[in-house]
Amino acid sequence: MEYITELLLIAVGAAIINNFVLIYFVGICPFIGVSRRVDMAFGMGCAVTFVMAIAGTLSWIFTYYVLRPDAPLATAVYHLFGGEGPSDLSILNYLVYIFVIASSVQLVEMYVRKFFPSLYKSFGVFLPLITTNCAILFACLYILKMVVGADTPAQMWDLGQSLTLSVFAGLGFTLAIVIMAGIREELDLCDVPKPLRGAGITLLVAAILAMAFMAFAGVNKNLMNLLTPAPAAASTTDDAGKKSQTAETTNADTNETQITMQGAK
């Protein structure tokens, strides 16, 4: 139960509170470049989410078993060749990540082209662009930080947490870019001052969106308080009631944003 709560917090944190695009500024290039139309933006978002999930999983496996200091596999090989003490391959981190990303992009492209030609038509064109998308490398680095930087071995992230982070960070990216595309479709009808047309106005809109997303900061704290039973009181039924309530409130929150977005349209 505690584990599920933790996953939920990671999901909410990655998707809305610390949205990769609007708070960490990664994946800005597609955010500006491919946000002209909603359907294209959605395709890009799906492609990023897909690749991020695969790259996140692979990078966790490599980090945990090979790259981190005292990783089991690397140490075993090191000892096989007569080395002593723990191995540390962290100097290779970035090289490995970028190759994991590049090869997963390639794999996804081949797989989708072969088995889902119609899907390939809708978002295949974005796939090669994704290799240089900072958001995916950032997700890998985030996982690295959570694995290597943990206080105790028990707090080290496992595969489930890494996968949750990558999937929901991708969804957060999709959310941001689709909202942006929705606004930009309407902006085409507006009289924007000439120097600001294109990237300028997009960034100004992004500023307002970032302000809106900043309002989510701290949500996870209250979510956690609601989800973790207070040590003395809170019975199980009470807890379940609270949980569904929070789920509703978060839903209501997101709905509201969407409604506002539609309102803006």
């Binding site: 917090l9 944190g13 610390n18 930087g149 206080d151 900061a217």
Partner: peptide, 14 residues
């Protein structure tokens, strides 16, 4: 001396 970390308002606190 121990390290303590967790989620703050915006990002992790260590």
């Amino acid at each position: 001396v121990i390290t303590a970390s967790g989620m703050g308002y915006a990002d992790a606190i260590k």
